[in-house]
Nucleic acid binder design. Structure first.
Lengths: 107, 107
DNA sequence: AAACCATATAACCATATTGTTATTTGTATA
DNA sequence: TATACAAATAACAATATGGTTATATGGTTT
């Protein structure tokens, strides 16, 4: 995965409200109207947060009548840990730097 | 770890430049002046990025003469994967919601 | 069809983020 | 001591983020 894409997923996780939503969804699927009274923010704010999580594929949505239930995508969460330990390798960049004589050695 | 604190660590990771710096540091320790020619941004910009990584304890710094070398803190990176799979449990919040009759059941 | 409820979107505002250039601080060296 | 280089900090600008209220959309119910 590219640095940009990995950063986008981390951006989706870089907010306490969204992390809390993910934790709640781990206990059970929830709809927006259940999440609203748990947080001290408006319904549109919650709606935008879950939408951000959906774009990052961290949650999925299922409409049930007038409600939209959100569920956690555990596979995606596992992918993140993997991405962190397998960031694109940049050894080549450092080799180029060395060829240009831009490396610093001090001993 | 609190949601706020976890979010702060993810914020530090939520930028492609910082992720790239971490990847470079995985190959070997680098000083700021080595990082600058690799990226298309100014020295102060790089300096601020490594500073952000340092605040999040994702890197450590060691001064060697006029250079400051940065090294990756792999332990901290491992902590992140752990934090993600062990987010604070909110079952209690959902129980309260149920007591207030605010849960939605549709079947 | 009309009213109702849940959710999404629009328009907007305050603050945070990420870059810039100019300057300061710390260390080494002529 | 004066000069030079590395890195950090200050002041600032453009854009992104996260909240608000008002409104639109989708589906249910009377």
């Amino acid at each position: 995965m590219e640095f940009e894409k990995i950063a986008d997923i981390f951006k989706a996780l870089a907010d306490p409200t969204r992390l809390k939503i993910l934790s709640l969804l781990r206990t059970r699927d929830c709809c927006v109207c259940e999440l609203v009274p748990i947080f001290k923010i408006s319904q549109p704010a919650i709606s935008k947060h879950v939408s951000r999580l959906k774009t990052a594929e961290l949650v999925r949505e299922t409409r049930k009548g007038q409600w939209v239930f959100y569920s956690i995508n555990e596979k995606r969460l596992e992918e993140i840990g993997y991405a962190l330990s397998h960031l694109p390798d940049l050894t080549e960049e450092l080799r180029k730097l060395e060829q240009q004589g831009l490396t610093v050695t001090c001993e």
